[in-house]
Simulated scan of single mutants.
Amino acid sequence: MVTRRMFLGGLAATATSGALIGSGTVSAASGPVAPAAARVPNSLPFTVVNDSGRYPNSALWMHLVGRELPSDRPVRMTPDGTLAYVSASDNDADGFADYAIPLNGAGDTRFDLPINFSGRAYFSVTEKIRFRVNPDDTLAYPAGWVESDPNYRILHDCMEFTYDATGMYCNTTKVDMFSMPLGIELTGSETQRTGFLVDGGREAVFAAMRGNPDFANLVVDDLRVIAPSHGIDSGLFSPTFYDSYVDAVWNRYQSDTLTVTANHTDFTGQVQGGLFTFTGGVSPFEKPTTRDVLFCDGALHAPNDGISGPVAAVLGASLNRSTLLDSARAPILDPDAFYLDQTSNHYSRVLHENMVDGKVYGFAFDDVGDFASYVQDHAPAGITVSINPF
């Protein structure tokens, strides 16, 4: 399975050229148009639906950026439906590259997504996203949680995808921030939908975050809610929020034994000499900081080794969901048992509570137990991304 964590690893790849690499459906000047009756070979029909009820198509912009597979070279889709390598020469006089694609003047926007493309579909309101291509032809992505970022005052959000010969893998991530409600419908061997908010869900998320003193500073006007992980780096969230909970977990398992089921294997562990030490060849874990917990990194870094990585993912998910003091087995798979402690990732909790299917990527290891807004199909027939009411 191509998880979000595997996808994110690819975003760090470098690129070196600006040559044309592929083709899709040719579009009119107003934006991509519906494909011809015959599907373009080695492509997947991709439809964008504007159900916002708030903005006309003319106020919305789409940007498809990512990397070519297997070269990992950064690419972007042009308004005429082709893929091109990004290049520092794309930067205009203002220092930013215009990679925006307008939606059709009315109705849905359809195009053919070329195969061997892994990336993000960004959507923005009124203004285009300002991308910057670095001198080495790598792409700087928007960082809506950084006040100095040129896109900070632009309403925008994204979904992620990887489309290759093995299928389509996609998600609506809220790991970094929550801004626009985006839903995915993936058709193929079955029809799958995820990322759709309940009625009034966006307003409910903003209100709940504003009403929680620990999380209130993460709300940026009506633009977005910043994830608490990034809030730490921005000075908007306490860097010690999880410390007392982590201390209690470490204290408990000095005498109790935790059983972690990961990768179809049971690993048992106790805290010894300050390190959480498990059986089965798992690398010991140092006590994580609040930042480590929320980013699921640092002391909770998950290597792709099939042993320490899966255990790290379970520990990270269990800490975000605050279940390790309630049960000596992990992961807990009953969502009613999540986020019950006052020290919990309430950003993730509130997002889950306002999703139709209860699934969302509220933090990086939210796929533990299949609670992430992630779908895949090995015989995809098409994908639809909806900008939902808000």
Rank of each mutant, 00 (worst) to 15 (best):
F285Q: 03
L197H: 05
A121F: 07
D222P: 07
L275F: 06
G211E: 13
A337S: 11
L103E: 00
G66S: 02
D221I: 13
T384Y: 00
V133E: 11
Y163A: 03
S148I: 05
I332K: 05
P380F: 10
R193Y: 10
L258A: 10
G235S: 08
I387H: 02
D149P: 07
Q254M: 14
A248D: 14
D51P: 00
G66A: 02
A381C: 05
F338P: 03
E127N: 12
I101R: 05
S17L: 10
Q342P: 05
T323G: 07
Y99M: 08
W145K: 04
L186T: 03
Y253V: 03
D326P: 00
R5E: 15
R224M: 12
C296M: 08
I307T: 15
G211R: 09
D357R: 09
V293E: 02
T162Q: 08
F237G: 00
A100L: 02
A302D: 06
A337N: 11
G358K: 09
Q272E: 15
R349P: 02
G200V: 04
D377M: 04
S234P: 01
A313I: 01
G53Y: 05
G201E: 06
I387N: 02
S118T: 08
T78M: 05
D94R: 04
T257C: 12
T257G: 13
D72P: 00
P288S: 11
P56H: 06
P74H: 10
D214T: 09
Y245R: 11
S17F: 11
N304R: 09
D370Y: 06
T78I: 02
A208P: 00
S118C: 03
G281M: 15
T265S: 12
G362T: 13
K287H: 05
G167A: 08
D233G: 09
G144Y: 03
P35F: 00
S17M: 12
R321I: 04
T289E: 13
R210K: 14
G306L: 12
P284T: 13
R76S: 07
T25W: 04
D137K: 10
E185M: 10
P70G: 06
V246I: 13
F196Q: 04
G362Y: 02
R130D: 05
A208D: 06
H378L: 06
V86S: 10
S124V: 02
G18Y: 08
R193D: 11
D94F: 00
N171H: 09
V175Q: 15
G369V: 04
S244A: 15
H63F: 00
P213G: 04
C158K: 06
G195Y: 11
